[in-house]
Amino acid sequence: MTDRYSDYPVATLKEYGYRDYSKLKPVTRILKQVLSFVIFFGLYLSIIIIAIQSLNSSSVMSSFESISLKWYPNILQEDDLMTAIGATMIVSLIATALATILGTFFAIGLYAMSKKKRQQWMLLNNVPILNADIVTGFSLMLMFILVNTFIKTVFTSLPQAWSIFGLPTLVLAHLFFAIPFVILNVMPKLKETDPNLMDAALDLGVKPLKAIVKVLIPAIKAGVFAGMLLAFTMSIDDFVISFFNTGETFGMSFDNLSVWIYGVIGRRDLSPSVYAFSTLLTIFTLVALIGYELSKNRKGRVKIKK
């Protein structure tokens, strides 16, 4: 065989321009996995270090002495830390809840507009997201000072200690940057919905508000949740904007954790319990997430059985 055809020019696969990459595949796959791992490691490195610090029995942070869990129960002993955690949670939960509800309705309102108008408003919606924190924080403070002065001149009966700085200003400031995130996440989902869906509901005599709650919101649920998550993240992570707009309400200081940490390191040392709290928050969320994913998978399997 070989002799007979050996005279013919035989084009190899290579000469056709085909290169065999299959041998490289395992290598590139491993490379890709390694690189993905490295990036994830980079993203989580600071969290890992905080976790290590929270387990250090010594409060000298430059060397590890022995593993100890003492900083965890100690969180409860640190009154100021507990107040700050409480304030953070109250502000972030209220702001997230309001931003999610309001943002969803606002997004529906914007979606009902003509395309051109909607685009103009979405442009403005991006300003709070992209604006520098320090500019947002400072300028909101200026406005709130004016509003505060105005309210106090109008309602002279208010006690001297009364002020809008505190819970109201913090929630408003957090709403300012949280609502746009909700709208951004809800809008694409709204576009994916069938426009006839709402019309059909309304034609069938469902009241407009009820139609939103019963028909539209279930359809855009994924966007609402994603928006809520982002709103909460931005709120809990915020330092600069809260810093300018914090204060006391109901006799309670509403300095959130970031502002409190910044204040404490001004003259004294930070208790390692702060690291313990951060670690707990991360682990708790990861566990909840994995649990959610597992329970969903189980549900899925049951369905298949049916």
């Binding site: 993203l43 989580y44 600071s46 969290i47 905080i50 998550l229 982002l230 993240t233 809990i236 992570d237 330092f239 954790l257 970031s258 940490i261 910044y262 390191i265 702060v274 690291y275 951060s278 928050l281 991360t282 969320t285 990861l286």
Partner: peptide
């Protein structure tokens, strides 16, 4: 992706 942001930026 965003979980690390739940810990304070200064701490991180």
């Amino acid at each position: 992706i965003i979980l690390p942001m739940w810990s304070n930026l200064i701490l991180r």
